[in-house]
Design a protein around this nucleic acid. Structure first.
Length: 705
RNA sequence: GCCGAGGUGGCGGAAUGGCAGACGCGUAGGUCUCAAAAACCUAUGGGGCCUUAAACCUCAUGUGGGUUCGACUCCCACCCUCGGCACCA
C-alpha cells in the first residue's frame, strides 16, 4: 500500500530543517558568486498576506532557488515597510498604539511567509519602524539637507482631507488608478469622473493648500533619471511610466517685451511658429478650476510686442494655462495649436495662417529674443507628513541660526510614544502638541529653538532599504547605514521583483536616492536595480485583488487544504508572470492532482528502464525549464514538466536517472515535495536546493571529468 | 490626443514564418464501487461528409488589405481592451 502524501507533515518537517541548518543564510562575508534576489517588501497589514503577495513572492523565490541550485550564492532577504499611514490607520481603527499593532502584524507576516516555503535569509531582516533602521532614514535626510537637496518652502500643495496630511504629486492620481470610488471630504462617494484628482491611498478628492513643507530636490536629477532608463533592464511599461512622469520637453523660452516696459517670458516647444503668434496667454490661478475644460479669459489690459513684426499682441488672463508649468505663460498661435485656436475663436482674436519656419530657432537666439530651454513635468518630492507614525524629521528651527540638523550622534531621534497620535487636519502633525518633543536647545548656538514636528513619508523609508539588508545582522546595532565593503560586493541588486504600481513612486524615489548617495560617495553605483521585473496584478472576479473591493483571497486556507507546493505550483502555472492572472479555486485541484501524481511516481517500484524517447524528452525539458525560468514563464516550464511526467508514466520507466532529474527540475516550484523525494526516496544527501553539482560531500561525475 | 502592453476554444493559456489550440481547468462517456468520492481510461473549436468505422473536406487566432510555396507570427490601415501621461504650450 502506497503511502499518501501528507503535505502538512512533510512541509513542516523541511521548513524546520531548512531553518535549523541555515540553508538559506547567505554567506555575506565570503560568498563569491553573489546573486542578490529581492522582492519588494510588503507593508504589514492587519489582514495579512493575500494571494497576490503569494503570487509575486513565489515568482521571486523560484528564481532564487534556481540560481542557488546553479551555484550562485543567493541572498534573498525579506522585511517590513511598517512605518507609515497604512499601519497607523489600522491602529487608529482598532484603537491601539501603532507600535503594538506592528509587532503583531509583522509576526503574522513572518509566519505566513515561512509557510509558503520561500528561501529567505531570516538572519537579515529590516523593519522600517525599528529605531535602528529609522535612525538611518534620518541620517539620509541630514545628508540630503547638507547637500542642499532638502529644503522647506511654502507652496501650494495637495492635501488629503481624509488622511489629514499633505501628499507628494506622485500620490495624487485618477480614481481609476487609485482603484477606488472617488469620495469627497465628508467621505461620501461622488460621481465618477476621470478628471478627478484623488488620494492614492483612500480615493478622497485632494484639496489645494498653501503650506510650509519639506521637499527633496528630485528635479535636479530629472535628466539623469531619464537618461538612466536607457541603461537598465526594466519592464517596458515601467520605463514608459517614468518617462511620462519626468515629462521632458525641449523648446525655448522667448522673452516678449511688454509695451509699457518689462518682460514676459513664455515657454514653447514650437519657436518655429513664432511667425503666426497673435496673442499671449497667461495663467490666472483664480480662474483655474480643476476639471473645468471650458476655456475662459479676459484681457489684462497690457500688450506685448511681436519681435518679428513689431505688432502689438494682446495679453489675456486665462484658465487654460497651468501656472506651475514652464513660465506660466504661452504664446498664442491659433494656426498651430488647437487650444489656442479654440480660445481665439471664442474671443474673436486674430488668426494668422503661416507655415512654420525652422530658421526661427537660430534667429531667436541670435537676436537675443530668447534661448533654448528644457522643461520637465517632474516636481520636487514632498516628503513631510502631518502624521504620527513615521520617522521624525531631524531638523531644528532656530530663530538665530535658521534650520539646523540634529547632530548625528543624537540619532535616532526617537518617535515618542504618545496617546493622542490621531491626525487633526490642522496642517500640523500630532507631535506639534507635545512641548517636551519640540522645545529644544539649538545644537549650534544653544538658544531656545523648535524641533520640526512633521514626520517623513513612508516612501523615504523604502527608498533605501535594499542598501541595508546585506549589512544588517540580527541582534546587533549598527554603526553605519550600510557597510561600504559589503555594499561594494553585494550591490546593486541583481534582480528586483515587484509590482508596477510603484512605477513613479518607490521605483523612482529609490533611483533618485541612489544617485544622490552615489554623488556623495557613499556607494559606487547609481542605479539600484539594473534589472527589474514587473509582475502582473492578481485579479479576482474581474477586478484587481484589494481589500477595499473585498475580493482578497487568503493563501493560508489553501496551504492548509492542499499545501504550499500545490499553491506555489498553481500560482506559477496560471500564466506568464507579467500577465494578470485571475484567481480561481478550480485550477488549484489540477495543481494538487499533479503533485499527487508526481508523488506516486516517486513511490513506484524503481526499474532501470531507459527509453530513448523519454531520455530525449527529459533533455528537452531540462533545456526548457531553464530558459523559461529566465523569462519568468513558469507556466510553460511546468507544462513541460507535466508532459515529461505523463510520458514517464506512459512508458513506466521509473529509472533513477529520470526520477533524480525530475526532482531537481521540480525543486524551484515545489521545494518540499522535491526535497522529500530527493532525501527520503532517492537517498540523496540534504539538500536538493543546493543543486546537484554543488553539494558538499557529493561530487558530480560530470564535474570531475 | 501622446507613450506602452495586448486581442487565439466554454475558461487559464501554448505556438514568433512550417500540422493552430501544447499543458491544465471544465464538460461528457467509461472502468472501479452496493453507492459516492478519489484515481485511472476515452472524447472534447465550429460546420460538413458517412449505414458504421478509419479517414476525409471546410471554416476558424479582433477587422480589412498586403508580402510569402506557406502568416496567430512579418508589413499597411482600422477597431477594441488594459496600464501610464495630459488644456504641459
Amino acid at each position: 500500500m502506497q503511502k499518501k502524501y501528507d503535505h502538512a507533515a512533510i512541509e513542516k518537517k523541511w521548513q524546520e530543517k531548512w531553518d535549523r541548518t541555515g540553508l538559506y543564510v547567505a554567506d555575506i562575508e565570503n560568498g563569491k558568486n553573489h546573486f542578490y534576489n529581492l522582492w519588494m517588501f510588503p507593508y504589514p497589514s492587519a489582514e495579512g498576506l493575500h494571494a497576490g503577495h503569494a503570487f509575486a513572492s513565489t515568482g521571486s523565490d523560484i528564481v532564487g532557488r534556481f540560481m542557488r541550485m546553479n551555484g550562485k550564492d543567493v541572498f534573498q532577504p525579506i522585511g517590513y515597510d511598517s512605518f507609515g499611514i497604512h499601519s497607523e490607520n489600522y491602529a487608529i481603527k482598532i484603537n491601539e498604539n501603532p507600535q503594538d499593532v506592528v509587532k503583531r502584524t509583522t509576526k503574522h507576516y513572518e509566519n505566513q511567509l515561512r509557510c509558503l516555503g520561500h528561501g529567505y535569509d531570516w538572519t537579515r531582516t529590516v523593519t522600517t519602524s525599528d529605531p535602528d533602521y529609522y535612525r538611518w532614514t534620518q541620517w539620509l535626510f541630514i545628508k540630503m539637507f547638507e547637500a542642499g537637496l532638502a529644503y522647506k518652502k511654502k507652496a501650494t500643495v495637495n492635501f488629503c482631507p481624509s488622511c489629514k496630511t499633505v501628499l507628494a504629486d506622485e500620490q495624487v492620481v485618477s480614481p481609476k488608478t487609485a482603484g477606488k470610488d472617488p469620495k469627497n471630504a465628508e467621505g461620501e462617494t461622488v460621481s465618477y469622473s476621470e478628471e478627478l484628482k484623488v488620494c492614492e491611498r483612500c480615493g478622497t478628492i485632494v484639496e489645494k493648500k498653501d503650506l510650509d513643507q519639506w521637499f527633496f530636490k528630485i528635479t535636479d536629477y530629472a535628466d539623469r533619471l531619464l537618461g538612466g532608463l536607457n541603461k537598465i533592464d526594466w519592464s517596458r511599461r515601467v520605463v514608459s511610466a517614468q518617462k511620462n512622469w519626468i515629462g521632458k520637453s525641449e523648446g525655448m523660452i522667448i522673452n516678449f517685451k511688454k509695451e509699457n516696459g518689462g518682460n514676459l517670458p513664455v515657454f514653447t516647444t514650437r519657436p518655429d511658429t513664432l511667425n503666426a503668434v497673435t496673442f499671449i496667454a497667461v495663467a490666472d490661478e483664480k480662474m483655474y478650476n480643476e476639471g473645468n475644460t471650458e476655456k475662459i479669459g479676459e484681457p489684462n489690459g497690457e500688450c506685448a510686442i511681436d519681435p518679428l513684426t513689431g505688432k502689438k499682441l494682446p495679453i489675456w488672463k486665462t484658465n487654460y494655462i497651468a501656472a506651475g508649468y514652464g513660465t506660466g505663460s504661452v504664446m498664442g498661435v491659433p494656426a498651430h495649436d488647437e487650444r489656442d485656436m479654440e480660445f481665439a475663436k471664442k474671443y474673436h482674436l486674430d488668426i494668422v495662417e503661416k507655415d512654420p519656419d525652422d530658421s526661427l530657432w537660430e534667429r531667436i537666439e541670435k537676436e537675443g529674443w530668447g534661448k533654448k530651454h528644457i522643461n520637465y513635468h517632474l516636481r520636487d518630492w514632498l516628503v513631510s507628513r502631518q502624521r504620527y507614525w513615521g520617522a521624525p524629521i531631524p531638523m531644528i528651527d532656530c530663530p538665530k541660526c535658521g534650520w539646523v540638523t540634529v547632530p548625528e550622534e543624537d540619532l535616532p531621534l526617537l518617535l515618542p510614544p504618545i496617546s493622542d497620535y490621531k491626525p487633526e487636519g490642522s496642517g500640523r502633525g500630532p507631535l506639534a502638541n507635545h512641548k517636551e518633543f519640540y522645545q529644544v536647545a539649538c545644537p549650534s548656538c544653544g538658544g531656545q529653538a523648535k524641533r520640526e514636528t512633521d514626520v517623513m513619508d513612508t516612501f523615504v523609508d523604502s527608498s533605501w532599504y535594499f542598501l541595508r539588508y546585506p549589512s544588517v545582522k540580527a541582534g546587533t546595532s549598527s554603526k553605519l547605514p550600510f557597510d561600504p565593503v559589503i555594499s561594494k560586493k553585494w550591490l546593486p541588486v541583481d534582480l528586483y521583483f515587484g509590482g508596477a504600481e510603484h512605477s513613479v513612486l518607490h521605483l523612482m524615489y529609490s533611483r533618485f536616492v541612489t544617485m544622490v548617495l552615489n554623488d556623495l560617495k557613499h556607494i559606487d553605483f547609481d542605479e539600484p536595480f539594473p534589472k527589474f521585473f514587473a509582475h502582473g496584478l492578481m485579479i479576482k472576479d474581474g477586478s484587481k485583488m484589494s481589500k477595499s473591493r473585498g475580493n482578497v483571497v487568503n493563501p493560508d486556507d489553501y496551504i492548509d487544504k492542499f499545501g504550499a507546493d500545490t499553491l506555489r505550483l498553481y500560482l506559477a502555472f496560471m500564466g506568464p508572470m507579467d500577465a494578470s492572472p485571475d484567481f480561481r479555486d478550480s485550477g488549484m485541484e489540477g495543481a494538487n492532482r499533479f503533485i499527487k501524481r508526481v508523488w506516486k511516481l516517486f513511490n513506484e517500484k524503481p526499474n532501470e528502464k531507459v527509453i530513448p524517447e523519454v531520455t530525449s524528452k527529459l533533455h528537452q525539458t531540462i533545456k526548457k525549464v531553464g530558459s523559461d525560468i529566465g523569462e519568468y514563464k513558469y507556466n510553460t516550464a511546468i507544462s513541460s514538466l507535466m508532459e515529461l511526467v505523463n510520458m514517464i508514466n506512459e512508458y513506466k520507466t521509473y529509472s533513477t536517472e529520470y526520477l533524480e532529474a525530475l526532482a531537481l527540475l521540480l525543486a524551484p516550484f515545489a521545494p518540499h515535495l522535491s526535497e522529500e523525494a530527493w532525501v527520503e526516496i532517492l537517498g540523496k544527501p540534504f539538500s536538493i536546493h543546493k543543486g546537484k553539482r554543488h553539494q558538499e560531500g557529493s561530487v558530480c561525475p560530470r564535474q570531475v571529468s
